[in-house]
Design a protein around this nucleic acid. Structure first.
Length: 270
DNA sequence: ACCACGACCTGCACGC
DNA sequence: TGCGTGCAGGTCGTGG
């Protein structure tokens, strides 16, 4: 479900309910996520949540004793519930607050993760290798030129590579490449600096717009208040294979790239 | 060092 | 109606 905008919308939604809250109890119904939820997650009990931040698609709930790291995988979602109804199928984890509110993780495919990390967050291996945040100045054309120099793989795969830039998943990689007029199959090293400049701009723009619109709801994404995102109305290529290009009217092509659906306009994207 | 690909899992849409 | 197939918003770990 979530790419960076959906995770950020989730963060914005849950954070006011969590900051300053004391964790009363941690309920693990099914520990079998991407990595088994470690029993030390109970160390969160009694802790006060100091901040709710995001790094890439990871949500970080910071306390004095450590950090709860949450990832939503492909199908995860978080809701703050008060009162919390009876847990349903795929409600794998509850963080019960002393106020009675519950932060509930639902994740049908269980590609998500919940990790209790008591060491300095900089030492966390999953976060260590990550590239720059797309919405900060660290993601700029100089960085991209350097990272893509001489590389032969398709630019779309590089855009979705967390070591190059984080948070850009399949939807927004397709959309940003369309907006930048770059063919997703094009070899990284063959894109001019001018066009990479445009790509950097469009990545930032598409992500920022999507966050503003509350994310993209394809199937069942909702924010912490249960509302869907409306960015789906502004998708130009994702999910539109065979339909006319919004810009030139020619039929959008759909191919596989790195086993992921890739949609583009053969005329507008070179 | 780089890259492609399998693996992890459930649910749903589709065609027969 | 039921069954098999393929696909889905991610990303780590492996083997070449």
């Amino acid at each position: 479900m979530p790419e960076l905008p959906e995770v950020e919308v989730t963060r914005q939604g849950i954070s006011p309910h969590l900051i300053g809250a004391v964790v009363d109890k941690v309920i693990v119904r099914n520990p079998k996520l991407r990595w088994p939820i470690d029993p030390t997650i109970s160390h969160l009990e009694g802790q006060t949540i100091r901040s709710v931040t995001r790094r890439a698609k990871y949500l970080l709930l910071d306390t004095e004793a450590g950090t709860l790291i949450l990832h939503l995988g492909m199908s995860g979602s978080l809701r703050v519930l008060n009162p919390a109804p009876t847990a349903e199928k795929h409600d794998h984890l509850d963080i019960v607050l002393s106020s009675g509110a519950v932060l509930r993780l639902n994740d049908p495919r269980r590609f998500g993760a919940a990790i209790w990390w008591a060491l300095p967050i900089e030492a966390q291996p999953l976060l260590k290798q990550l590239g720059p945040e797309p919405l900060t100045d660290d993601f700029n054309v100089e960085h991209l030129v350097q990272a893509l120099k001489g590389k032969t793989r398709a630019i779309k795969l590089a855009l979705m590579d967390n070591k190059i830039v984080v948070g850009v998943g399949n939807i927004y990689a397709n959309e940003a490449l369309f907006a930048a007029g770059i063919n997703p199959k094009r070899a990284c090293g063959s894109v001019s600096k001018a066009r990479l400049t445009k790509l950097v701009e469009e990545v930032k723009l598409v992500l920022a717009k999507a966050i503003e619109q509350g994310g993209t709801t394809l199937k069942d994404f909702t924010n912490a208040d249960g509302k869907p995102g409306y960015f789906v109305q502004q998708l130009h290529v994702y999910g539109r294979g065979g339909l006319p290009c919004d810009s030139c009217g020619s039929s959008l092509q759909e191919i596989k790239l790195g086993q992921r659906a890739t949609v583009f306009c053969g005329k507008c994207q070179r």
